[in-house]
């Protein structure tokens, strides 16, 4: 895997259909370059903390935004969020929870852990595509991240 380029979006999604639809929506918005996909929580953590299959990666090349599903195999989304926001090396990376769950407990817990946005995936594809495109536009283009000293 070529890991020299900077990953802009880390998409953590286990459902292949949702994954394809999200990729399609991003492609339509021309924000598909530099997309890294993790299919479960453990893979996401390996990528973010440069462990396991991603041991060669550099921590400095952090993604600009993480799109995180909550219900994931192995390590669930809330646990991934907790690890990201609990580690000084990753806590500044914006995390957008992109999930099917409207359960208030999930929303509250995500915000308690420091999520930057919480988006419920709509069933309607136009709404879904619009949501994904707006997330991409906002976090990749509009948002001004802190300049970290190397």
């Amino acid at each position: 895997m070529n890991e020299t380029f900077v990953v802009e979006i880390l998409l953590v999604e286990d459902n292949p259909h949702d994954l394809e639809l999200t990729q399609r929506a991003l492609r339509k918005a021309n924000v598909t370059n530099h997309l890294q996909v993790a299919r479960d929580g453990a893979e996401a953590l390996d990528f973010l903390f440069c462990e396991g299959a991603h041991a060669e990666r550099k921590m400095e090349n952090a993604p600009k935004v993480i799109l995180l599903d909550l219900k994931l195999p192995k390590v669930d989304g809330l646990e991934v969020l907790k690890r990201i926001k609990g580690d000084p090396r990753t806590q500044m990376i914006p995390v957008v929870v992109l999930t099917s769950s409207k359960e208030q407990n999930d929303v509250i817990e995500s915000y308690r852990l420091g999520v930057n946005s919480y988006i419920v995936k709509p069933v309607n594809f136009e709404s879904f595509a619009a949501a994904v495109q707006e997330i991409g536009m906002y976090w990749l283009l509009l948002n001004q991240p802190p300049q970290l000293e190397e």
Partner: peptide, 17 residues
């Protein structure tokens, strides 16, 4: 809340595709 919506999204999304 979690699981039943995903297949619907696939039906709707891929029909639209």
């Amino acid at each position: 809340s979690h699981d039943l919506r995903a297949p619907l999204r696939a039906m709707d999304g891929f029909s639209q595709a």
